[in-house]
Amino acid sequence: MIGYTPGSTIVHRLDPRGKLAVQLAFAIAAFAHTTPRGLAALTILALAIARLASVSVVRAILSVRVLAPFLIAAPLVAAIRLSPPAIDPSAAFQPALASYRVLLVFVVAAAYVHTTAVRESRAAIQRTIPSRPGVLLGVGVSLVFRFLPVLRRELTTVRAASAARLGTERPLVDRIRRLVVVGVNRSFTRADRLSAALSARCFAWNPTLPQLSFTRLDIPVFATAIGLLAAAVFV
């Protein structure tokens, strides 16, 4: 599992907006150059970024293992021909490159997730998206981070309690209904308590944000992003 891990790498100290720019530019470059040469160059860059952020490439790829059936099936299905010869390996080449490209983008994204605290991401969102939509997104996203573990634990408890009472023997629709009803009820109860607490604490459209400022360290980050975009457009 990839999540934010406090650390002192150079990537931890960078501005989150620069890191977001690099991820977007990296994806655009990977889509523009889905060739063996282009992907080889991007592989070197992705490994360098992972190294600088001290994030494990293996863990980054394992964290998206649920996508493996799609990434493997796409080239396989492309290779199947209805008329003989039944298998055409050359048709699988391009979809296989596309699958590999996805993994590269995930490695770069994992470097961001590993090195960026929620409050920094929130500040980046609120400084990039102006006025009320930005505040709404920033507040909402930090609440999601706060409540996800709570709700996850509650659902696990409910499932365990249901299984202990032979709930697993019930029909599927009934099992889903029971679990979701408890999940939704608890979420709405928490939401009501939360909104009372937010109002009581003067929840405002113009709160104080943590400071973000670009430093000299961020210059190479933006240079990388611009370089990747230029490579996508001109090369």
Partner: peptide, 29 residues
Amino acid sequence: VLYLVAGAIGAPVFSGGAAGIGHLIASPT
């Protein structure tokens, strides 16, 4: 939208507990 943005910046909310902006810009899903 909150769900997607939270997942993009690192909340483990996508299927299998995955996270990252890669899911929104490069994933087959």
